[in-house]
Design a protein around this nucleic acid. Structure first.
Lengths: 348, 348
DNA sequence: GGCCTTTCATGAAATGTTTCACAGCCAAAA
DNA sequence: TTTTGGCTGTGAAACATTTCATGAAAGGCC
């Protein structure tokens, strides 16, 4: 069968404690002995038994990435997960991927919790991604399980204290994007994005602030007209065009919405950016590859993932330490879908 | 601290063996005792220690999903991963997500293996997804670690025996799609897709067979003109149009390629499907939401994931049993981007 | 009542590792 | 020479659970 530390010790004619010290890179081992032990390890093809090690240390280098209430693992969350894995691989941790759907209305004690919480000792810290609500957080806390959360998609009745969370800036980015469009001379800038979700409302508020500050009228299509991003962008844009509302630019609250809007514009023989400027949000891969590339707000998802992992591991090391929230900045990526309003430029 | 099985036994005034039987739903426990034990468990908020359990059983209900040689977790692989997780959650297993990049040219013994293979006992079976080569498979086999693999993206010099793999049909689908376009009266059907990857070559061969069988000329743009799907579809389509080659339909080897082609067509004032019919491959979410919806070949990725998980678990149960390969069928989804060739229909 | 069978609780053994108190050895200091 | 102190190797204890041989109690049959 597979060899154990005992076999190695016997073959190297040392005590198991010595073998353990060699494996774990402890100092205070005679070089000659270390050599002998390493030779024995090679010869026996010994690999440490992770199960025994975890058991005796009462710790597992495992983070559980929980994707809550999302039927699809979107490019956005995929990239976050990849960031988490990347950091974990660098630091010797492992990532467990779990999907978990629940209703915000179930009392914490009635929640059918994901398997990772039913036993204890499977993962040492949770990363709560996806959309989460108070009841699940409460249940996790009652179990005394460590966790860190993605702050942007956290839906709570009262604002949470800014600890043990990682997020990105849902205000500064949209504000900057709107200002940018205004700078380009646009006045009829439409916001498209269902604001029933509070992170879209934040983006809308930033847009609204920028518009109001410049004395411009807010033009928001904040009610969803379809149940997916693309179709919603498409339908909202068609609706605006059909009504003949003035419009020279669109700020879409998500890249996929922008793509829908774009196709609707093309359908109406409007060209981007010649006729309409278009700004998205997220900078998914597709945004940079489009012809022309989509001007959008880049959220560094991999960075968000890395920070989540880093925070989770820090949490394991010092469980009682509340770690201040980390906000990953969002940057405006100017590509080919935005340009100055022709009339404004030529008449000025 | 957290309570152990011993605490429960003491409180319920039974032996630990009895508590163990209650926890693990063994029969042969007196109902009265079972009740008493369950009460004690509730009162102490006892949760079994997964680490101790795994240690003593020398088994972990964990599968490791390895995404090899992919810088992005594409919607395609995301959906497979979700299928894996879904099945695992149903059967009490957990999924570890690992990314692993390696060169096909490194000898097996020189590979810097992912952490999950450095110890033993972290995961009981691997699911090899992404693009994999012989050297890594060999290394895994030499370690004696169980695995199942996604067959479509397996690149080996000699064909692998059809065991312990799950895949989808890369031939029948493309063949059917091409036949469908031919049935619609199309004669100038272009294949777009870089065939340097062998799974694209399979799709091309099926297209070629269908065309040849009907006495039609194969029109393949099989050399990549850009380094991502969308841009490649865009560039290839522009190239075809710029040369003035006759074309009434495009079969794109992947949905994203189709989207690029579509945008290039629009750029040239060609409308889909009025002027050009378009068929994709994959049926990513975006395909169904487009206006009009993209006619494409649906690969049931969640199903692929579920079968991979099922096979992996079966592999753990009976390690020496070679499990015949599973091929998940691919189906043609007819949406709005395909229609009969006008001229052909009217003149016949 | 005596004997046999069935049912079910008991508690010790076993699992592979880390940890730690202790001991042995050697060099330097007294 | 003896004592002290610093290294470094040793091996038993501890970890929480499952498993299993053992045995007690209960029930059935003559």
């Amino acid at each position: 069968m597979t060899s154990t530390i005992k076999d190695v010790a016997k073959r190297a004619r040392v005590a198991i404690g010595t073998v353990s010290r060699v494996i774990n890179d402890h100092p205070d081992v005679d070089p000659a002995l270390r050599e002998r032990v390493e030779k024995a390890i090679r010869e026996l093809q010994y690999r440490p038994n992770a199960r025994a090690r975890r058991f005796v240390q009462n710790a597992s280098p495992v983070l559980s990435f929980i994707l809550s209430n999302r039927s699809v693992l979107s490019p956005f969350h995929s990239a976050i997960l990849q960031g988490v894995e990347e950091y974990c691989a660098e630091t010797g941790y492992f990532v467990m991927f779990t999907q978990y759907d629940y209703s915000p209305d179930t009392p914490p004690s009635d929640l059918r919790l994901p398997g990772v919480l039913q036993s204890h000792g499977i993962a040492d810290c949770l990363i709560l991604a996806g959309t989460n609500y108070e009841n699940f957080i409460t249940a996790v806390e009652e179990l005394g399980v460590h966790y860190v959360a993605l702050s942007n998609h956290l839906v709570t009745s009262t604002p949470r204290a800014p600890f043990d969370q990682v997020g990105w800036d849902d205000d500064a980015g949209p504000y900057e994007a709107t200002r940018y469009l205004i700078t380009l001379g646009h006045k009829h800038i439409w916001y498209i994005g269902d604001t029933s979700l509070h992170w879209y409302k934040l983006r809308y508020s930033a847009y609204e602030r920028a518009m109001t500050e410049c004395g411009l009228e807010t033009l928001g299509q904040t009610v969803g007209l379809a149940d997916n991003y693309y179709a919603n962008g498409y339908a909202c844009t068609e609706m605006i065009l059909d009504h003949g509302y003035p419009m020279t630019a669109i700020f879409a609250a998500y890249d996929e919405i922008a793509f829908g809007a774009w196709d609707a514009l093309r359908k109406h023989n409007l060209e981007v950016p010649r006729d309409i400027s278009l700004v998205g949000y997220g900078d998914d891969d597709a945004a940079q590859f489009k012809m022309p590339g989509l001007t959008t707000l880049r959220v560094e998802k991999a960075r968000v993932g890395r920070e989540l992992a880093r925070m989770a591991i820090e949490k394991i090391r010092r469980p009682d330490n509340r770690i201040p929230q980390i906000i990953v900045p969002v940057s405006l990526i100017k590509r080919g879908t935005t340009r100055p309003v022709s009339v404004t430029i030529s008449s000025s």
